[in-house]
């Protein structure tokens, strides 16, 4: 996972991928670009991290994939959230918010 600035925390990548796919299906490169876009370039996910994560999430049943023609007339593998994936996204989002809030409070404590 190449970083332009910030290293990804453990577990963050999964959540970012789920979030990137929340608005619709994307192929691998699309996921990576979407993550770059929604984090405003803070995280750039390279294929070496992206593809293992996509396959892991698919094996876990949170993503489903289909082959479809892509924008330049090639075939690409598109990933979409499954129902379990949507649930996972909402669970992980609340968990993340809880942790972020706790960390913010801890760091502000005097």
């Amino acid at each position: 996972m190449a970083k332009r600035g910030t290293a990804l925390l453990q577990g963050t990548l999964d959540l970012l991928i789920l979030k990137a796919l929340a608005t619709g299906e994307l192929h691998g490169l699309g996921v990576s670009r979407r993550i770059e876009q929604i984090t405003r370039g803070t995280f750039v996910v390279r294929p070496g991290s992206l593809f293992p994560a996509l396959h892991r999430l698919e094996e876990a049943g949170w993503l489903a994939s289909t082959w479809q023609p892509s924008e330049n007339n090639r075939r690409a593998k598109y990933y979409a959230l499954t129902r379990a994936g949507r649930k996972r996204l909402s669970d992980e989002t609340s968990e993340w918010n809880r942790i972020a809030l706790a960390m913010a409070r801890a760091l502000e404590a005097s």
């Binding site: 192929h27 691998g28 490169l29 294929p47 593809f51 396959h55 094996e59 876990a60 049943g61 892509s70 924008e71 330049n72 090639r74 075939r75 690409a76 593998k77």
Partner: peptide, 30 residues
């Protein structure tokens, strides 16, 4: 899902591998 994936990965290894090859190559080509 994990059990199913395990079964799929062990039994259809060649197909899964071709699939992966095509996926990564297609991304690079893009």
């Amino acid at each position: 899902h994990r059990v199913f994936s395990l079964w799929r990965n062990l039994v259809h290894r060649d197909r899964i591998d071709r699939d992966l090859d095509e996926e990564v190559r297609a991304t690079f080509a893009l």
